[in-house]
């Protein structure tokens, strides 16, 4: 692991990505407790404030502190991204492995489900779920996780198919190891590398989807902050103050850029064919 991160750090692009990722993580994890104000505390008379010593990033259209809301929105973005990726990775990997080992009929059935889920537009799916269940953070996580499961499932299936007849797995089977033991102790660790790279590359995608859903009003319900709702609120009051849009768009840009650069560097560091040695 240290060697992998060392290789990431040695790439200038990887270093920039890692620094941005660490900054976003710090903002999401320690930002809210350190924030000077309650992110939902209204102060109508102080609305549309420019950055100042009292409000480092200014205030929004209801006088709420933008730094506190940005930090809280960062926490929401990370919570959605990490929990979504964790669910999609776990379920997708299991289904992918199951597809690889299943009968042709079973494999076909799983792949058809993947195709159906992939073919369904995320936004339409989100609107349908919200109409049925109402808006909420848990619904956002559910929506995005379901749409990402085929992504991980297909990679897990392909990796499993390439390893299924490997000599070391054959040896385990000959020695009488149980299928679950072979899967847990030998198969999963060997297919996890590409899946982790995929997960790191998907984090910015998830952050963007969450922000997009929240921007459209079907994501995180008010008053909870999300970078998407900050952007939407700022957009509707752009002529009064540009700061909410600048802050929210800036955070989205830095977070997606950071996770993308970091993911690409991680991929290069793990894949020996793409490895860039200094």
């Amino acid at each position: 692991m240290r060697a992998v991160f060392g290789r990431v750090w040695r790439q200038p692009v990887g270093r920039l990505g890692l620094l941005l990722v660490v900054a976003v993580l710090l903002l999401g994890v320690i930002g809210p407790p350190l924030a000077p104000y309650d992110p939902n505390k209204l102060n109508i008379l102080a609305r549309f404030g420019a950055p100042s010593t009292a409000h480092w990033l200014g205030t929004d259209h209801l006088g709420r502190d933008l730094f506190s809301r940005t930090a809280d929105g960062g926490r929401v973005a990370l919570l959605v991204a990490l929990s979504t990726i964790a669910i999609a990775l776990a379920v997708g990997t299991l289904l992918g492995i199951a597809a690889a080992y299943a009968s042709p009929w079973g494999e076909r059935a799983i792949l058809v489900v993947f195709d159906i889920v992939s073919a369904f537009p995320t936004l339409v799916f989100a609107l349908a779920v919200v109409a049925l269940l109402g808006p909420g953070l848990d619904k956002v996580i559910l929506i995005v996780a379901i749409t990402l499961i085929p992504h991980f499932g297909r990679v897990a299936r392909a990796q499993t198919l390439s390893l299924r007849n490997s000599p070391f797995l054959e040896a385990e089977r000959v020695l009488g190891a149980q299928p679950w033991r072979i899967t847990a102790h030998h198969l999963v660790p060997n297919i996890l590398g590409p899946l982790v790279v995929l997960a790191s590359m998907d984090i910015p995608v998830v952050i963007t989807i969450e922000a997009g859903l929240s921007f459209l009003g079907v994501g995180v319900p008010p008053p909870r902050a999300s970078w998407g709702t900050l952007l939407h609120d700022g957009y509707t009051t752009l002529s009064q103050s540009p700061w909410p849009v600048i802050v929210a768009a800036g955070m989205l840009t830095l977070a997606t850029l950071g996770f993308t650069l970091f993911g690409e560097a991680l991929r290069d560091a793990i894949d020996p064919k793409l490895r860039v040695e200094p």
């Binding site: 939902n40 209204l42 259209h61 209801l62 009003g217 008010p222 008053p223 609120d233 509707t236 009051t237």
Partner: peptide, 14 residues
């Protein structure tokens, strides 16, 4: 979901 009504809702909520 009009901005003015949503803002009113948030203020009433607080």
């Amino acid at each position: 979901n009009k901005p003015a009504y949503q803002n009113a809702g948030i203020i009433v909520q607080a």
